[in-house]
Computed example of a mutant assay.
Amino acid sequence: MKKALLGIALLSAIVFTSGCTNGKTTSTDATSDQSTTETTTVESTTESIDPEVAYQSILDDYSKKIKDATPGLVDEYNTEYPQQQGGVDALAELSNAKVEKLAEISNEGISKMADVKSESKDGQSSYEEWSKKLMAVYTEESQKIVEAYQVSATPVESSEPVVYQQEEEPQQQQQAVEQPVSQAPVEEYTTFNKGDDINTIAANAGISVEKFLELNGFTLDQYFFSPGDTIRIK
C-alpha cells in the first residue's frame, strides 16, 4: 500500500511540475529515481532471511510435533501389543512401527533445515548443529516407546524355563570367590532391512545414534548401510 501511495505522490509531482522549467523537471526526476532506489533497497532487506531464525523456527515447530505425537503412539502400542502373536519379535515389530512415525516427523524437519541451508548458502556445520538438536528430541521421545516395549516384553521373556544349579561344595565355592571368572561383553547383531533408519535401530537397541554408528565403525558425518547388512547393536 505504501509503495502504491509513493507512486501516486510521484505521479502528482510530475504532473504539477510539467509546466515548469526543464531544470525543475530534471530535479523532480532525480528525486523520483532516488525514491525508487530506496524503496527497492528496503524491499531487498525485508526479503532476506536469517538462517539461524529459520533453523530455530523449524526446531521449535517439529520438536512440538514429535512431543505431541509421542503420548498417542505409546497409548497405541499399549493397546495393540496384547493382541500380538509371535512373542518378542512381534512386539519389536510393533514398537518399530510406532517409532518410525516419529522418525518421519523428524526426517521432515531435517529436510526443511536442508532447504534453508541450500537457499541461504549457510555452512554445513551450522546445518548439522541444528539437525542434531532435532535428532536429540526424536531420540529422547522415541525412547519412551522403547520403554513401553521393554515393559511389555518382560513377561514374555520371563516365561522361558529357569535352570537351577546344584549347590557347590564349600571348597569349590571358596575357589570361585578367589578366582572369579571374567565374562566378556555379549555382542548382539541384527540385519539392516529395507526401510530401516539409524534413528529407529538405535532407539530400539536402547543406545544413542552415535554409539550405534561407533559399534559399526561409522560416524554421523560418514555412514552407509544397505538392506541385508549385518549390523551390531550391542
Rank of each mutant, 00 (worst) to 15 (best):
V42E: 15
V53A: 13
I110A: 11
D196K: 10
I110F: 00
E52K: 11
V137I: 13
Q222N: 14
E93H: 06
Q183M: 09
D60N: 12
V162Y: 06
T26I: 12
E47R: 12
Y138H: 08
K3L: 15
K67T: 12
L73V: 01
D60M: 05
T139D: 11
G23S: 14
K117G: 01
K112G: 01
S12C: 12
L11S: 12
Q165H: 10
S48V: 11
K132R: 15
K194H: 09
D122G: 07
G86V: 04
S131G: 03
F192Q: 04
L10C: 06
L73M: 04
T41N: 15
S44Y: 07
K211Y: 04
I14A: 13
I233M: 06
E108L: 08
V53N: 08
G195Y: 08
K121R: 11
Q222H: 10
F224S: 15
F218Y: 15
G86N: 03
P180V: 06
A202N: 02
T39V: 11
A69W: 00
T70K: 02
K67H: 03
K132H: 09
Y55F: 14
D122Q: 11
S32E: 10
G72A: 07
T79K: 13
K121Q: 10
Q173D: 07
P185R: 05
K121S: 14
S152I: 00
G228D: 11
V146C: 08
A202R: 01
L94D: 02
I145V: 11
Q171T: 13
A13R: 03
S18Q: 07
Y138P: 03
A69M: 04
Y77L: 09
V146E: 10
T26L: 15
T139G: 10
S106I: 00
S226Q: 14
Q183T: 14
S226K: 15
A69Q: 05
